[in-house]
């Protein structure tokens, strides 16, 4: 392993390898700037949805459409996956590469589970409920907001999967560690956006 840690002065991987190099620290800081931009992006989609959520054009309303159980399962899956990516970063800080890879794999699997549930949900809306992208302003705003979040989950699944491959190939180094840390930040942010989605889209839709 020591050969892969050659970047540090004493040849040992530091406690927080993601912050060991200036490049790593810059990566983490600039990723926060990116997440600030993501907050704006999702904010505008939430704004559109909130403005149009009652314009149902005689199509299905939120109250008719949504089921508590699907939303609850999706919420639970994503929340657990956020916790497993915390454990991944903790394993990284202890330099346990195998545990790190396993936690990342569990995170990816839970992400895939969330995506499967969302695909099932959207398919049900389109086929059984006749709730398509062009049904109403509400349906367009709904699919754009929730679909955009789903696309973020899909991208995260792809990203973390590639990172797992890189961890197999290159091990944990001061180069790979910032990538893991930043991907965990991204995954937490996706979970944070989902908290607002299940609150504003699904639960608020049930209240009326």
């Amino acid at each position: 392993m020591s050969a892969t840690h050659a970047e540090t002065v004493d040849g040992k991987l530091p406690h927080e390898p993601e912050k060991a190099t200036l490049e790593g620290r810059n990566k983490v800081l600039s990723f926060w700037l990116f997440l600030g931009g993501e907050a704006v992006l999702f904010g505008t989609l939430f704004a559109t949805f909130l403005a149009l959520r009652n314009q149902t054009n005689e199509g299905p309303t939120a109250n008719e459409l949504f089921h508590f159980s699907t939303t609850a399962y999706a919420t639970l899956i994503l929340l657990v996956s956020s916790l497993t990516s915390v454990f991944a970063v903790q394993a990284m800080h202890r330099h346990k590469v195998t545990a790190l890879r396993v936690w990342l794999m569990i995170t990816v699997l839970l992400g895939l589970g969330f995506l499967g549930l969302e695909i099932y949900e959207f398919t049900d809306y389109v086929t059984a409920e006749k709730f398509g992208m062009t049904t109403s302003a509400f349906s367009s705003a709904f699919y754009t907001l929730v679909g955009f979040h789903g696309a973020h989950v899909a991208f995260g699944v792809l990203w973390i999967s590639i990172l797992i491959g890189q961890l197999f190939k290159k091990g944990l180094t001061v180069v790979t560690a910032p990538k893991v840390y930043v991907s965990a930040m991204y995954w937490h942010f996706i979970d944070v956006v989902w908290v607002f989605i299940f609150t504003v889209v699904y639960l608020l839709g049930k209240v009326g």
């Binding site: 926060w32 997440l35 600030g36 931009g37 907050a39 704006v40 904010g43 704004a47």
Partner: peptide, 12 residues
């Protein structure tokens, strides 16, 4: 950064 993002999002 995040407060800036949330401020613009909230304004929208």
């Amino acid at each position: 950064f995040m407060l800036g993002g949330f401020f613009v999002a909230g304004t929208a």
